[in-house]
Design a protein around this nucleic acid. Structure first.
Ligand SMILES: [Mn+2]
Ligand SMILES: [Mn+2]
Ligand SMILES: [Mn+2]
Ligand SMILES: [Mn+2]
Lengths: 217, 217
DNA sequence: TAATAGTTTTAGATAAATCTAAAAATTTTT
DNA sequence: AAAAATTTTTAGATTTATCTAAAACTATTA
């Protein structure tokens, strides 16, 4: 089995390789892991020895099929536990990420399958992220980030790409939760902030916020 | 917070100090932790520095109030998760111990309270062990081990003091599960095995098995 | 293309938890 | 109360994951 640390590295590498295509850089991983580049290099050698990543010195890394499968297993667990916490234990969507960061490392394949069954095989977690099935398959969401939309376009909020409590509480205050329909009035040239119509309300969100809201057109 | 390892040491020390009174010996801990006496000595120094145990070289250890409270928190989590696995996820009682060994280290006080609520504040786990409440209180069971009973006495099975899958599956085969009423016919002098009446069935269990069955008179 | 800036790797240390082998202390037996 | 047996502790290594500082490499800019 893989250590907690190895699993967290794999998850960070997976998410970075989703964000932009191409190889993942040492510094980006260090940032994602809240650690130093030197520590990352040490771990990259280890993950490479285990055939979880393809690694060429100075050239960045990509996940192997084995590494990708391992990363997706962890992500599946994370998202299933988040559903459990919200649906069954009545946590709010902004409270569950940190607990799921711990629960995602529990190692029992049968537990994951039983949990999935107990939850009714949910397709998405409380933040709108797709939940991989037991074979690792999921519909890669065709969603667009709010800051990439253009004036006049409409859609509904399908998810968020940041899970921190302050961010989610902020969204809630603005009434911007999953399932809410909206129309983009304008993307401001000056600061990139987005002017929205939500129901009868006119709302302005900063570019920083818009970058973490996912819209289904 | 305490590391997983520290928590496991505290739990082992707690259980050993329940088993027989007086101080707990280094070798007993080493046995319980599947480690070597030298490693235990190292850890005892660390736990002593943290004021979790009272430790005098060569004289064994006892838990401080702080140490006892920490141990009981872990035990509470272990037993609540076992109830979750059996009641909600439909695991058998012999399948849950190892998974609970991992789940017991998840660190979120609010999660434990929500879980307790979700499960309906159970008083006992699937093996009949009492579940400490959020303040650490529980009724210390006044039960007697089967091998300490005498001929003619009756009672019902209230719990088991071993949680391994082979043992529990063996009990299940004999029909000796929690809640079953029985009468002791004889404690054999020769090998300590116990002759039982369970319903209309006459059953013989070895001393080794009898040592791990708890009876409420 | 040569200097500069930025990124990544190596070298060497540290902290946690473990180990083996040997020394020290305690308990049991004669 | 010695001697023997057992238990416990120390000394010194090892493994994993981390760090800082310096060296090596790559990319950018002039
Ligand atoms: Mn999350
Ligand atoms: Mn994690
Ligand atoms: Mn158990
Ligand atoms: Mn444990």
């Amino acid at each position: 089995m893989h250590s907690f640390t190895e699993e967290n590295y794999l998850k960070v590498i997976y998410h970075l390789s989703q964000a932009d295509t191409g190889t993942v850089q040492t510094n980006a991983i260090a940032n994602g892991m809240n650690t130093k580049a030197a520590s990352v290099t040490d771990m990259l050698k280890k993950l490479s020895d285990k055939k979880l990543i393809d690694y060429i010195k100075y050239q960045g890394v990509t996940l192997t099929e084995k590494g990708r499968a391992a990363a997706i297993k962890v992500i599946r667990k994370h998202r299933l536990w988040e559903v459990f916490l919200v649906d069954k234990l009545k946590f709010r969507w902004d409270e569950v990420h940190d607990i799921a960061e711990e629960l995602e490392h529990i190692n029992s394949p049968v537990l994951v399958e039983r949990l999935d069954d107990f939850l009714g095989f949910p397709k998405r977690d409380p933040h709108g992220d797709p939940i991989p099935d037991k074979d690792g398959n999921f519909e890669p969401s065709e969603n667009v980030h709010l800051h990439h939309m253009t004036s006049g376009k409409s859609g509904i909020i399908i998810g968020v790409s940041e899970h921190s409590s302050p961010f989610l509480i902020h969204l809630e205050k603005l009434g911007l939760t999953i399932g809410v329909p909206l129309t983009v009035l304008e993307i401001t040239d000056y600061d990139g902030s987005v002017e929205l119509m939500v129901g009868t309300q006119r709302i302005n969100v900063s570019r920083k916020v818009a970058e973490h809201i996912l819209i289904k057109l």
